[in-house]
Amino acid sequence: MEELLLRVVPGLAQQWKGATPDEIAQIERIAGRPLPPFYRWFLSRMGQSMGPLAYPTLDFSAQRVLERYAEEWVEPHPRLLLIAHDSQEMMPTSLFYDLDDTARGDALVVTKEEGADDGELYESFETLREMLAWGALFQFRLGKMPQRCGGTFSGDQSDILSLVEPVMSSLGFKQPISTGPFCGLYERADAAMICKGMPRHGFDEARSFSFGGSDAGVLRKILGEIAAASSLNVEVTEWTPPLE
Rank of each mutant, 00 (worst) to 15 (best):
P76V: 09
D118P: 05
T93L: 10
E89N: 06
H85R: 02
D106Y: 10
D106P: 13
K112H: 12
E114Q: 13
M91K: 05
L108V: 10
H77Y: 02
Q88W: 11
P92L: 08
H77V: 01
M91Q: 09
L121V: 15
I83C: 11
G115E: 08
A84H: 03
S87T: 14
Q88A: 12
Q88F: 08
D101R: 11
L121C: 07
A107R: 00
P78G: 09
D86Q: 07
E114S: 11
D117N: 09
V74P: 00
E89W: 11
R79G: 09
E75R: 15
R104S: 07
D98L: 10
V74L: 06
L82S: 01
M91W: 01
H77F: 03
R79E: 12
Q88T: 13
V109F: 05
L108D: 09
D106R: 10
E89G: 14
T93A: 13
R104E: 15
E89C: 02
P76N: 11
D101P: 00
G119R: 10
L80A: 04
D98H: 05
E113R: 15
Q88C: 11
E113T: 11
R104F: 10
L82F: 02
D100I: 02
A84S: 07
Y97W: 07
M90G: 03
D101S: 12
E114I: 13
D100K: 13
D86R: 02
A103H: 08
L99K: 02
L80W: 10
A116R: 14
D106A: 12
Y97F: 15
E89D: 13
R104K: 04
F96V: 01
A116W: 12
D86M: 04
D118L: 08
E75W: 11
G115Y: 10
L95C: 01
Y97K: 00
M91I: 02
T111M: 15
T93P: 00
T102Y: 00
I83H: 03
L80C: 06
P92K: 06
H77P: 09
T93E: 13
D106F: 08
E89L: 12
M91S: 03
G119A: 07
G119T: 12
D106Q: 07
Q88S: 09
D106K: 08
F96M: 03
L108H: 07
D98G: 05
T102Q: 15
L80N: 03
I83R: 00
G115R: 06
K112Q: 15
F96H: 00
G119P: 05
H77D: 15
V109W: 04
P92D: 03
G115C: 09
K112S: 06
L95D: 00
T93K: 12
T111F: 06
F96E: 01
A103I: 04
H77L: 04
Q88N: 15
L81D: 00
G119M: 09
D117I: 02
A103T: 05
P76Q: 13
D86K: 04
Y122M: 13
T102A: 14
A103N: 04
G105I: 07
D106L: 10
R104L: 06
Y97P: 01
G119S: 14
Y122R: 14
I83M: 11
L95I: 01
P78M: 12
G119W: 11
R79I: 12
K112I: 09
M91H: 09
L82Y: 02
L81M: 05
V109G: 03
G119H: 06
G119C: 08
L99D: 03
K112R: 15
M91Y: 05
D118A: 11
E113A: 14
D117L: 14
V110F: 08
V74H: 00
K112D: 04
H85K: 04
D101Y: 07
